[in-house]
Write a protein that binds this DNA or RNA. Structure first.
Lengths: 160, 160
DNA sequence: GGCTTCTCGTTGCGCTCGCAACTATCTACA
DNA sequence: TGTAGATAGTTGCGAGCGCAACGAGAAGCC
């Protein structure tokens, strides 16, 4: 069957391909920028943001990996780097000796603040500036229909 | 300045974050599927498609890297793998001894055909099924506004 | 209390891939 | 014809990160 059957509509295929390319172009540029100016990767940044955005600025390793797009092993190594740079410190848990917390340090907070400036300018330049406010909202709504695209879904980070 | 200045609108930021997550979730799933069923990565697949979609099914290495999202060095190694698997063969150029061609073999053509089946079903399941035809067209149009998202742009593959 | 099973974080290993440097070749210009 | 500069492809190296396996600890069940 189906030598030429349309398993996927042309528009969907085109949308997916453009998503792939857009992601690649933008992520690469933002990563280079963040890395050259602040010495951190996109994943580092994302992790720090997750910490800052929760009260107490402290999260369990597994929770961090769940909120970002990393596996637990990836998060272990990423946090090792952040700790080495003094952006984060580790804490143990009294009630459960297995768990380990990562907490934003004051220095980490400062560095994140500076990086935010750079990063948001980058997002604006490479991405936001090419949409009207309405288009951005539309795009966000459409992308939200993809399972796993909404923050809080548990798509892969927590797996394996 | 700007402790809380909005460098990027909330909608834009949300759109970017969702794009990031959607890409991660979908790409990971499609890659795993393609790899387990056909032993090839998403990049392999994309490269084979580029070859199939041009008359003569033959392209220069640099052209391949330009059309995919890979650097020339990445393409060198990727094509080495495809050649080892017999999906592609290398040819030299009569008029320019520097250039090297990659050409789809009959076997490569077959394998690609089979992989297409799997891959398109995957795209449909993880992506296309969550949009109406109209939404997909809208999404494609919006993503097309990102510089570099359109095929034929020369965003990064050709660089370095 | 023991036993099984689950979860947490870490580690060894391997893969993909970009960057920078290198060689070989082509092109331009004198 | 000689030489400088651009370009094609390859390679060494290293970063990022997922997977599978592991040890430590927690929780449920008898």
């Amino acid at each position: 069957m189906s030598v030429d059957s349309e398993l996927v509509s042309g528009a969907s295929l085109e949308a997916w391909q453009r998503l792939l390319r857009a992601h690649c172009v933008i992520a690469r540029e933002l990563d280079v920028e963040l890395q050259s100016v602040h010495g951190m990767t996109l994943s580092d940044y994302d992790t720090l943001v997750q910490l800052r955005d929760c009260e107490s600025e402290t999260l369990k390793m597994s929770e961090l990996s769940r909120r970002t797009m990393l596996t637990r092993s990836g998060m272990t190594r990423l946090v090792q780097g952040l700790e080495r740079d003094g952006l984060v410190e580790r804490r143990s848990c009294d009630s459960d000796a297995r768990v380990s917390y990562a907490a934003l340090t004051p220095h980490g907070h400062e560095v994140l603040q500076a990086a935010r400036e750079t990063h948001h300018a980058g997002i604006r330049r490479t991405f936001a500036d090419h949409f009207t406010e309405e288009e951005a909202a539309q795009l966000a709504a459409l992308l939200g229909q993809v399972p796993g695209a909404l923050e809080g879904d548990v798509p892969c980070g927590g797996g394996a």
